[in-house]
Design a binder for these strands. Structure first.
Lengths: 203, 203
DNA sequence: TCAATCAATACACTCGATGCATTAATACAT
DNA sequence: ATGTATTAATGCATCGAGTGTATTGATTGA
């Protein structure tokens, strides 16, 4: 499937990975605000300018590869089956995002780190929040376009907002409480169930 | 009620107001990113340093006096009547916030301006999102403390997240669509109704 | 082996934000 | 009225994030 990436591309990915690991290590030790981009670059043995070649901002290094999650949700909407109603589609989209969170950020502890760091770094907290709202917005637009007759833009936004809002708030609360990855995933799933009101499902 | 503020205090408020008005005017004309703090200060005829004496960041000037809204919601929870259940309390809290939005930000067009500016200014978009999430978090904690036996922290977060998520998403969508203040308020109210599921109310 | 591409670098610069010392106007007590 | 304490506002120096631009040097493909 993937054409072998070539030496240049491999080296690029290596420096990117080195930057991420250096950043995470330094953030863990000293906190987000007390680490400069220059430090990160030095620890990764590249120039400061190179950091900004890979990441738009200092925060972005903590959200590397996280955009995939939104794409998964959009894909779930795009690949809906013929007669499927939008509540089910929305739930499937959320399940995709939850599964991906589990695989990439929850088990690795990255999600927990982000929330911990955000406690004391307003910029990071803002960026974290923005990601949820952006996901909401894009998912709402996709859902509106998939069901244009039944969901006007505002109704779609409200529906998706309730869902994503519940899940994100539950996730944050669970992470802040220090729950295990399994606990966080349970919190996410229960939030989904809460919004789907009267429908119960097996544990 | 309010002890006459005194000359010093009045002057302070005047410079604050001058900064706000200068900032809004410049942002409207040139966009958020293309206005420097130095420009704002110059337009308000104060020094750059003075700007940061009144506002923590360049974004904050667009959210002046907006923290009152969260306090109103918290107050609604604190002043709940004896036998009241949490769904009603939450709805009342939301109605407080909606009413305050209407009075201060919606009719003045400030809310619309913020959303318009946020389109092209990532920092501003992040800050805007952060405000919603912060409101969620604080309201959830208040509700949990008000009903500690019936709502554990995560459940409260999910419930409040659904409500605030729905309202904020609907608000954003409505503002982006260019709705009138009345239209936006309607969108907010419908979002509340959506979350309260099966309960209908008069227009 | 030559030319094209592109990741990484160096350097200069803008701008947001903070610390600190100073000024001058207001507030307050005698 | 007069002296003293506050404190809003200022000036100056500095840090750190982020960008524009030109350059170097290693990979790529012919």
């Amino acid at each position: 499937m993937t054409e072998s990436p070539g030496l240049r591309e491999r080296k690029k990915r290596r420096t990117r990975q080195a930057l991420i690991e250096a950043a995470v290590r330094l953030f863990e030790r000293k906190g987000f605000e007390h680490v400069t981009v220059a430090e990160i670059a030095e620890a990764a043995e590249v120039s400061t300018r190179t950091f900004f070649l890979h990441f738009q901002t200092k925060e972005d290094v903590l959200f590397a590869n996280a955009d995939v999650r939104i794409d998964l949700a959009l894909q779930a909407v795009a690949e809906r089956r013929a007669g499927e109603r939008f509540p089910e589609v929305l739930v499937r989209a959320m399940e995709q995002m939850i599964a991906n969170s589990w695989d990439s950020d929850l088990t690795s502890g990255l999600a927990a780190l982000r929330v911990r760091l955000a406690e004391s770094a307003p910029v990071l907290q803002a960026r974290l929040s923005q990601r949820y709202v952006t996901a909401q917005t894009e998912l709402a637009r996709a859902l509106h376009q998939a069901y244009p007759d039944e969901l006007d833009p505002v109704a779609a936004a409200a529906l998706v907002g309730a869902m994503v809002g519940a899940v994100s708030a539950a996730t944050l609360a669970s992470l802040r409480r220090g729950d295990s990855p399994e606990g966080v995933r349970n919190a996410m799933r229960q939030a989904v169930d809460l919004v789907v009101c009267c429908r119960h499902r097996a544990n």
